[in-house]
Amino acid sequence: MNRDYSYLIDTLSNWNYQLDEKQIQQLDKYYEMLIEKNKVMNLTAITEFDEVLVKHFADSLSICTIIPNDIKTVCDLGTGAGFPGIPMAIAYPNFQFTLIDSLNKRIKFLQEVVDAIGLHNVTLVHARAEEAGRNKLYREQFDLVVSRAVANIATLSEYCLPLVKVNGYFISFKSGEIEDEISQSGKAINKLGGKLTKPVLFSLPNTDISRSFLIINKEINTPKVYPRKAGTPSKEPLK
């Protein structure tokens, strides 16, 4: 391995987290497989190593700054090319991860990654978010649900909160201005059994990339009518 991971190592150190040599090697193998598969399948527009290090690896692992202490099971909904789920699963080998995506080709690729780098704490599921949220295997089964998916928080909450256990958490990775989105989504989050806490704003070190975490506590069971049928949460976000 001759790629330079010092940015990630130093950044995590500043966040009071550390990866061992095996974990760095797992990330490196993941990077190699991602770039190779990206030649024949659209997984990510970010392919240069330095950019992947910052915008995918460091960004995914920035959650180490806020992750709750009482976590055992994690779901990454709409995982895409595996972010943040795969880096998180590498960094937290004692957690059990379920990565869900609607495109089976992506799930098959991620299974190849999981097998190649020896991740024994990852289960991969091919399903639409609406299907997963109604499936008793996944509904209200996770201590923490995360998503880097690009959608408004009302829509994401309808997808994700049905999967969160009562007293668990949904954490959404966000960028850009979020104040209006937050103000417009409070009632929707409450309908789904959640309560939004104050967002955590930060920048990725040595960059001008501003990020934020929206942290939603699951206080009561999500009503059975949610999530609504496929396509509805995105076309008609709750208000």
Rank of each mutant, 00 (worst) to 15 (best):
S175N: 15
L214V: 12
R139M: 00
T232C: 02
T222F: 01
N135D: 15
I215Q: 11
Y138E: 05
D208E: 15
L196V: 07
S185C: 09
A188I: 08
S157G: 08
V145S: 03
K198N: 15
T207K: 07
K229Y: 08
S210L: 12
I153Q: 08
P199G: 01
V150I: 13
S147C: 02
S147R: 05
K136M: 04
Y159S: 05
K235R: 15
K187L: 14
K165S: 07
T207L: 08
V225D: 13
G186R: 15
I171D: 13
Y169R: 08
V145Y: 06
N135C: 00
T155R: 06
T207C: 05
L204P: 01
I189K: 07
L196W: 04
G176E: 13
E140N: 01
K136V: 03
P162L: 08
Q184D: 15
K195Q: 14
K224A: 09
A132G: 02
D143W: 05
E179V: 09
Y159Q: 10
K224I: 11
S147K: 02
L156D: 10
N152H: 11
F142P: 01
A188Q: 08
F213Q: 05
G194W: 13
K195G: 02
I153D: 07
G176L: 05
R211Q: 08
F142K: 04
I189E: 10
S185M: 10
D143S: 00
P223R: 00
P227D: 04
N221V: 02
N221L: 05
S210H: 14
G194D: 13
V146S: 10
D208L: 06
R148T: 05
I215N: 02
G168Y: 10
L214K: 01
P162G: 04
K187H: 12
E236H: 13
E219P: 00
I216T: 07
D208P: 00
Y159G: 06
L192N: 00
S172Y: 11
Y226H: 04
A151D: 14
K191C: 09
K224S: 13
V145D: 12
Q141V: 02
F202L: 08
D180H: 10
G186N: 15
T155L: 11
E236Y: 12
N206H: 14
G193A: 03
L156F: 06
Y226E: 06
L163C: 04
V200Y: 15
K174Q: 11
A151W: 10
V145A: 07
I178L: 13
G193F: 09
G133Q: 04
E177C: 02
A230P: 01
N217W: 06
R228N: 03
Y159L: 11
N152P: 09
R228A: 01
Y226P: 03
E131P: 01
F173T: 05
Y159W: 15
F202R: 04
E158G: 03
S175L: 07
L137Q: 12
Y159R: 07
R211S: 06
V146N: 12
V166R: 06
V200M: 10
S212F: 10
R139S: 00
L196T: 06
S147T: 07
R139P: 00
